[in-house]
Design a protein around this nucleic acid. Structure first.
Lengths: 331, 331
DNA sequence: GTGAAAGCGCTAACAA
DNA sequence: TTGTTAGCGCTTTCAC
């Protein structure tokens, strides 16, 4: 709990000016071998490390990449892991920041975070499920972006195909009353997943029933009401395609609470394949997104941007993973 | 990619001084209602957000809590999630930092990270599996600390009991050649888990065989050699208690690579119960640590410290979770 | 009620 | 080779 050791402390202890210490630390020339050695020894003795904050105020580069998230939920965490792995053995450190989503102020967290950290602290940012595309002060890559993104620097997946495969899986099992627990409608991914759901129904000649679509917002807390609403229906669905895994899991939780079992009474398919999907009981049938690879792709794009080139966006494949939460309808 | 909007821009646009803008933003008094309203409107128009960096250089408080990790691996990520959840609805934002572990320089990352962020940027830190106890410039809580921690502010679990339960489970199944894939020996947890392993063997009257203990370092990459070594043994083990889940999973991977199957040819038990444990095939039998609760506990302790009180350390219970990676030995 | 000025820790011109 | 100085964006005295 002692105060931090600053460059001034080092300078004093070494009997030189702070400028000399700064040069020594950063390997600039204009420092004699003797002074360099001496300063470095004092640095070691005192255990001095330069303050990231002060350094980044003065310098343009910090060699830190920021992963900006609204919330540390499983999707973001897996992505973070992919980013971090990809950044190992580069000169970059990783810093992840979750700005407070002050009650309802969901919108705009990315602008706030970017504004607070960008230009200082981080050299580039990876935005996870951003709501808007703020004009960033630094190179920025968006993962699973909002709708209508015009900038090329985005990483996303084949949502339509994935959602369609999920729905077709349920159709193949014999389900006809298939509900959809929708995602965050401001995100492109949620809209595309709903589109895939409807396309599959269309192709099967099943009329779209708006009553079978409820809002889940990609979050457990926001899915609860929707899950109940679907099960309250007079002609309740026998299967649900949830827009992501956490809402699928919440769907099953609500069903269980009401005395229904998956997959016997209700089949449920998710989307994402977060680690929790396979550890749930029953194991969740879901559409796999290659989250670690997506993190790595985001890193590649960001490094390219930092190098001055403007990379193309990437859209990665998805894959249906059939597990235990789906079965033919009863009766 | 436009330059950041600074307080100076706001001041200029509003036709007032930066001091006035600062006061307005921070709700200090000494600003007329009219000026306040006017400044706030300009702030909104320009989309200004104060720079975290600049602010934290000048102020002592930043209302940001740092979670400092060596690496974003599953254990740290789950903990981060717990911390983040616990910090919701407080005035604190979460920032997580993984300093580069420059080849071999594993030791001391926490001192570097703390030094670079502490005193500025973050008000308090949660250190995940720190190797040493640096005297921190700010309140600090250690989760799963190194050996011989003297400070009270630590969060850990009942490692001995957990490890003992894991080993006893294997004994009960009928195993006698039980190996141990050790963890990071600089951490208290790894030593205690080995202790629990040996205690269980002792109690069962089985002589400890040093050849059956290999190093895993809690990491997949470091477990590979140890896993091979154990399987290379003339009298190979029929079961392995790995010090954490990632090394248990690596153990199984190596076994599979060599044509062995879990649990038929080799039973494996892990420790942690990260989400990946249950999603692995076969599902991993493991010792559960309440990771989310541990994150929440760390937050409680840290907030107490920020309030000026010195909290006691906590040690949480573990629980054996039997899944599919363990079975009686063959023959 | 408002603004000028100092200074947080650091780096980069520039002078000596 | 070294030190002096200015200034990054912000907050905080302290004059006015």
């Amino acid at each position: 709990m002692t105060g931090r050791i600053t460059i001034t402390d080092v300078a004093q202890a070494a009997g030189v000016s702070v400028a000399t210490v700064s040069k020594a630390i950063n390997g600039r020339d204009g420092v004699s071998r003797a002074t360099l050695a001496h300063v470095m020894r004092v640095v070691d003795d005192l255990g001095y490390e330069s303050s990231l904050v002060a350094t980044s105020m003065r310098r343009s580069r910090t060699n830190v990449i920021g992963v900006l998230v609204a919330e540390f939920e499983p999707f973001a965490l897996q992505l973070l892991r992919g980013v971090s792995d990809a950044l190992r053995d580069t000169r970059y450190d990783v810093l992840s920041y979750a700005g407070t989503v002050s009650a309802g102020e969901h919108h705009g967290w990315e602008r706030r975070s970017l504004s607070r950290l960008g230009g200082t602290l981080i050299d580039g940012a990876i935005l996870v499920t951003p709501t808007i595309a703020p004009d960033a002060p630094i190179p920025t890559v968006a993962v699973d972006p909002h709708v209508g993104t015009s900038r090329p620097a985005t990483v996303s997946v084949q949502n339509v195909a994935g959602a369609r495969a999920a729905t077709e899986h349920l159709l193949t099992l014999g389900h006809r009353r298939i509900a959809h627990l929708r995602g965050r409608t401001d995100l492109e991914s949620a809209q595309q997943r709903e589109e895939g759901y409807r396309a599959a129904l269309d192709a099967a000649g099943i009329r779209y029933d708006p009553a079978l679509v409820a809002d889940g917002g990609y979050r457990a807390a926001e899915s609860t009401a929707g899950a109940h609403a679907l099960l309250d229906l007079a002609d309740a669905p026998t299967a649900v395609f949830a827009a992501n895994d956490v809402s699928a899991i919440e769907m099953m939780r609500v069903a269980t609470e009401r005395g229904l079992r998956a997959p016997d009474d209700l089949s449920v398919v998710g989307f994402d394949d977060i680690p929790e999907a396979a550890s749930h009981a029953p194991q969740l049938t879901t559409v796999r997104q290659p989250l670690l690879e997506m993190g790595a792709a985001a890193v590649r794009m960001l490094l390219a941007m930092l190098d001055g080139t403007e990379p193309d966006g990437v859209r990665m494949p998805t894959e249906l993973v059939v597990r235990a939460s789906t079965a033919p309808p009863r009766g």
